[in-house]
Structures are given as structure tokens and as C-alpha cells.
């Protein structure tokens, strides 16, 4: 719990302090929306290694962290970025090449795991996945689980309903809590103490935030506390969960940020082409990630014309009529 009044810091300081080699991390967002991409690129630039990454469907950010070689182990429900990459390409290559250990869950199971972590209970039950290979096949061997104190000893457990037939349920699947060392999310508005407001869908960001030991928030706009406190029912993240507040314009770019900007179809299409080929991917990383000092550098490289094209319509929340081919 961090009650400090002013948690503003720059992104490289926040990442250096909280995202270390081998740490367990989760990132916010969903497929091509509100991934904390500025933070992802900074993690890549700092060459953080051996991350243990927890994701439900975090798409673009997950694929870039994997592509840059930052991730050793992944627990995930869905690695895709919508029509731009029905299966994330660097993820797919890493799994097929055997360089990434993966444990598969469903989206609801990953959400419940974060929620259990946020609630302080060891597991939560669901009826999802009974009878499937998600129950049968364990990506992480039990021996590996036994030898790693930061992992639960089982992927999941199926138990008979201890309340008999109560709620017309014969048995349930228990999924273990996640408490990442650090969660990074990108939001529209935050104040200097860390109170934060997400506009549009929150996905599982709130559960991810509250389950983490440390929390980094990047925000489009740093606003006065009074502005947020005037409508507290629109705020989701309490400041005491937050360790770092980092204002970053276009901090989710090239993914979308509702009411601010759309995803950039040009970037995502170029990324897909580069990701298919190892040499081209290396060139992509060199040019667009390692070659930049920060997110502003990337924005300068992309240019105002493209950024203008993805400006969100204030009422619709996305760029109306954007060419998304």
C-alpha cells in the first residue's frame, strides 16, 4: 500500500524500479485496445529478460514482449489481435520453436485468477472447461511447479460441489489466484496520487491492478484530484494500489484508447508483415523500438498525418470512417 501524495515519475524510472529480470508481470488492455504499449516498448528497450507473463487476451503487448525475447513463461487464454493477427505471430513462432513455456486457461479463468488475487483468496470456482483438454493438459510440469515457490503446485483442481447439489452443480473447477509482482495498465485519466479513471470497457484491468504487489499506471492525461473526485463513481483504481503515475500521451499507441484515438491499422498491418520473418522483425525492433528514446520518438516517426487519421470522434469514441483495410 502506497499512500504517497505524488507518485509521478518518468517511464524509464518506473520500469527500472518495478519491472526486473524474472519478475511476474501482467499488462492491461485487450487484443488491440488500451495495451500499455509505451511501457511495453520501454521494457523491451531496457532488455528485461525471463519475465513470467500473465495475460487473458492482451494481444499486441504480449506479442511484442515475446517477440523481443523478454518472456520465458506465459499463462494465457488468448494470443490474438483481432483481424490483424488471428494468432499473434511472434507468440506462435516462440511456441512452435519451443522457446516459450505456455500454460493455457480460458478468459474467464484468467479473470477469476486475477480476481482471486485481488480478493486475497487462494482460488475461485467456475463451471467452465469441465471435460476439456484445459483440465487434462498442463503446460507447466508438476515438477517445475514444485520447484518454483512463486507458482501454485497445480494448474487447477476439479472438485465435487462441497455443498452437495446446491445451485444444481455437481462439480467445479478451482483456478489458483495470481498476485503478480507488477501490473502495468494504461488509462485515460489519473491524478498525481494514482486515482485513475478508465473510459469505455475496463476489461480485467481493475482485477489485474488490485491483485498486483506493485502497480504502474500510464495515463493520457494527468488531471487534478478535484476533477476526478467530482465524479468518483467514474473512477476505478484507488490510489493506494498505485506506485507510479506516468503521464504518456498516446501511451497505448498503436493500440486504441477509447475517446482519444483508434488503433493504427497501418502500424498493425506493417507489424504483421514484419513479424512473419525473423530478419524483418529484427529490423522492425531496431527501427521502431530500440531506435527510439521514448514513445514521443515513435510518435514523431509516425508523424502527425497518421496520428490525425486515428483521432477519435468525441461522441463515437473511435475514428469514424478510418480506412482499416
Amino acid at each position: 500500500m502506497n499512500t504517497s501524495e505524488n507518485k509521478i515519475m518518468d517511464l524509464s524510472t518506473a520500469i527500472e524500479r518495478y519491472v526486473r529480470d524474472g519478475c511476474h508481470i501482467s499488462i492491461g488492455g485487450f487484443t488491440l485496445n488500451r495495451n500499455p504499449m509505451a511501457a511495453v516498448y520501454e521494457i523491451i528497450r531496457r532488455e528485461v529478460k525471463n519475465l513470467h507473463l500473465y495475460a487473458h487476451s492482451n494481444g499486441q503487448g504480449v506479442d511484442e514482449l515475446i517477440g523481443a525475447g523478454c518472456v520465458a513463461k506465459l499463462e494465457i487464454a488468448y494470443a490474438g489481435s483481432g483481424r490483424f493477427a488471428p494468432t499473434c505471430i511472434r507468440f506462435r513462432k516462440a511456441v512452435e520453436n519451443g522457446t516459450l513455456a505456455v500454460e493455457d486457461y480460458s478468459n474467464y479463468q484468467m479473470t477469476l485468477r486475477f480476481l482471486a488475487g485481488a480478493m486475497g483468496v487462494p482460488f475461485l470456482p467456475t463451471r467452465s472447461s469441465l471435460g476439456t483438454s484445459i483440465i487434462e493438459k498442463w503446460g507447466f510440469a508438476e515438477s517445475m511447479r514444485q520447484s518454483d515457490p512463486k507458482l501454485p503446485n497445480k494448474k487447477l483442481v476439479v472438485v465435487d460441489n462441497p455443498f452437495g447439489e446446491w445451485a444444481d452443480t455437481a462439480r467445479v473447477v478451482l483456478v489458483p489466484a495470481i498476485n503478480p509482482d507488477v501490473t502495468v495498465i494504461h488509462v485515460q485519466k489519473a491524478d498525481r496520487q494514482g486515482t485513475a479513471r478508465i473510459e469505455g470497457l475496463t476489461f480485467a484491468d481493475i482485477e489485474q491492478a488490485k491483485s498486483a504487489k506493485h502497480m504502474i499506471i500510464t495515463c493520457e492525461e494527468l488531471v487534478e484530484s478535484d476533477e476526478l473526485r467530482a465524479n468518483p463513481d467514474q473512477n476505478q483504481i484507488p490510489f493506494f494500489c498505485v506506485d507510479a503515475v506516468v503521464p504518456v500521451r498516446y501511451g497505448a499507441y498503436p493500440t486504441a484508447c477509447y475517446r482519444y484515438y483508434d488503433y493504427d491499422p497501418v502500424y498493425l498491418n506493417d507489424y504483421r508483415k514484419a513479424a512473419r520473418d525473423d530478419e524483418r522483425y529484427k529490423a522492425y525492433l531496431d527501427e521502431f523500438v530500440y531506435g527510439m528514446n521514448d514513445q514521443q520518438g515513435l510518435l514523431d516517426r509516425i508523424g502527425t498525418e497518421r496520428l490525425d487519421s486515428i483521432q477519435a470522434d468525441p461522441q463515437k469514441g473511435y475514428a469514424v470512417g478510418l480506412d482499416r483495410k
Binding site: T31, G82, F84, T111, G200, L201, A204, Y258, Y263, G317
Partner: peptide, 23 residues
């Protein structure tokens, strides 16, 4: 009003009756 290209596309957020979470 425009076809979303992912279930998290901001186009799914427009004029909803309620925005929930994954949970």
C-alpha cells in the same frame, strides 16, 4: 455503426446499454 475487427475494438463500446467487465 462500423464492423469491429476485434471484440475489444472501440466500436463495440459505442451506445451500449451497459459496459461491464470480463468478469
Amino acid at each position: 455503426e462500423e464492423v469491429p475487427l476485434a471484440v475489444a475494438d472501440p466500436r463495440v463500446m459505442y451506445w451500449t446499454s451497459v459496459n461491464g467487465s470480463l468478469a
